[in-house]
């Protein structure tokens, strides 16, 4: 088992060394003539305006929380998936093992889906929309006059 994780270690080392070598070689090769225009933040060709450190919508936090919960469920699913179709266990229990395992897992996932459905129906997952402020303005000219002008010049 440890030697199999050794491959992962090799991958990690390769990633670090590869990045370092590429950056170093690029630094050796490239010309270095910075100016103000080159050093500005590139954002789709737009001139950057204001602070990047804005407050995010609180709703993202709920989504992240739900993600962590289902992530935990996934952790339980993994060891189950390796033994659920095990042939020796299935044969020695006359196929009962597989049925038992799948029923248990359906109950486990079902409980969580029940919770998700409850939160969904109760509206806890609704996206908080920013309030649109409609301008309050009463024009002395009736709207039909504007429409008449629009029709005349269109």
């Amino acid at each position: 088992m440890l030697s199999e994780f050794g491959y992962i270690l090799l991958f990690i080392i390769t990633a670090i060394v590869f990045t370092a070598v590429i950056l170093f070689v690029a630094k050796l090769l490239r010309p270095n003539r910075p100016n103000v225009e080159k050093l500005t933040t590139y954002e789709s060709g737009e001139e950057p305006d204001g602070n990047a450190n804005v407050r995010f919508n609180i709703r993202f936090y709920v989504i992240a929380l739900l993600f962590v919960l289902f992530d935990l469920e996934l952790v339980f699913l993994f060891p189950w998936a390796t033994v659920f179709g095990n042939e020796t266990l299935n044969n020695s229990t006359d196929g009962l093992w597989g049925w038992f395992a799948i029923v248990e897992m359906f109950i486990f996932v079902g409980i969580l889906i029940l919770g998700l459905a409850y939160a969904w129906i109760k509206g806890h997952l609704d996206w908080v929309r920013p309030e649109v402020q409609e301008p309050q303005f009463k024009s002395p000219v009736p709207i039909s006059k504007y429409e008449a002008i629009n029709k005349k010049y269109s």
């Binding site: 609180i58 709703r59 936090y61 709920v62 929380l65 739900l66 919960l69 935990l72 469920e73 339980f76 248990e104 109950i107 486990f108 996932v109 409980i111 969580l112 029940l114 919770g115 998700l116 409850y118 939160a119 109760k122 509206g123 806890h124 997952l125 609704d126």
Partner: peptide, 22 residues
């Protein structure tokens, strides 16, 4: 294992409820 499923459900509902109170 199944009890932990119930616990996770309680956490889910609690987290969703708390975050809407604001």
């Amino acid at each position: 294992f199944e009890v932990s499923g119930v616990l996770l459900m309680a956490v889910l509902i609690g987290a969703a409820y708390l975050s809407t109170k604001t």
